[in-house]
Amino acid sequence: MLRDITLGQFYPIDSILHRLDPRVKIICTFIYMISVFLVRDVWGYLAATLFLAIMIIISKVPFKYMIRGLKGILMIMILTAVINVFTTPGKVLLSIGVIDITLEGIKVAVRMVLRLIFLVMGSSIMMLTTTPSRLTYGLERIFKPLERFNLPVHEIAMMISIALGFIPILVDELDKIIKAQSVRGVDFNNRKLSVRIKNMIPVLVPLFVSAFRRAGDLAVAMEARCYHGGGKRTGINPLRYDRRDHIAYLVIFIYLSMIIVIGIIF
């Protein structure tokens, strides 16, 4: 029915990117996203494309998984392109009625769409090579310094990872409740929106009640296993920067300088 949501988009294979520290991947992806907004000419786009292509190749994830993320924003891409093509003033190439298609418009549209593709594919590489739990752990470590300002970083990370684990359980539960309520005569196939919304109530109420009960049980189970907050907790797979992580930082730094240099020269 549903593929394993707990793994998110993670594609299980062994590659250098998979083995990188999640912190490195998060920070590098962030830097790459910034770089996408710095490029303005052909050479810059070429550099960004080349970098992305190399990353895709060394991630060993099949290309079709990479472009899967693009499907979701296809409409946004088309809309962006169309609006830009028609609304940018400049040298008119073609007029259809009141609408003018300009050379500048096409240029801007291509640029915007390329940027969107870079952003989505850049984050796809991160998501495909890292499990959600490692990502959460990476974020926890990145934001750890904020605990000094009384921000409950560990607690938030713990909540996110527990929530991830509970998604499949609650999905199963939802399925059972829908079946149970169908048997009792609730019509889930009604075409009228108002009826459909009303029919969600007998599903959502039991789901919430059960979620609260589960949360209570889980809290007791966690306490029974000596959970008492972040403080002195250790980890089974603690994050430690390796040589390859330093190299990755170096690579992204060189790439960013290249983008900046290209921007200045051309």
């Binding site: 707990t6 499990t131 959600p132 739990s133 990872s161 527990i162 991830l164 684990g165 359980i169 009960r213 589960r214 049980d217 889980l218 189970a221 966690m222 296993r225």
Partner: peptide, 9 residues
């Protein structure tokens, strides 16, 4: 309940 005591993913 086996489901309500699993913490890790």
């Amino acid at each position: 309940n086996p489901d309500n005591q699993i913490i890790g993913t």
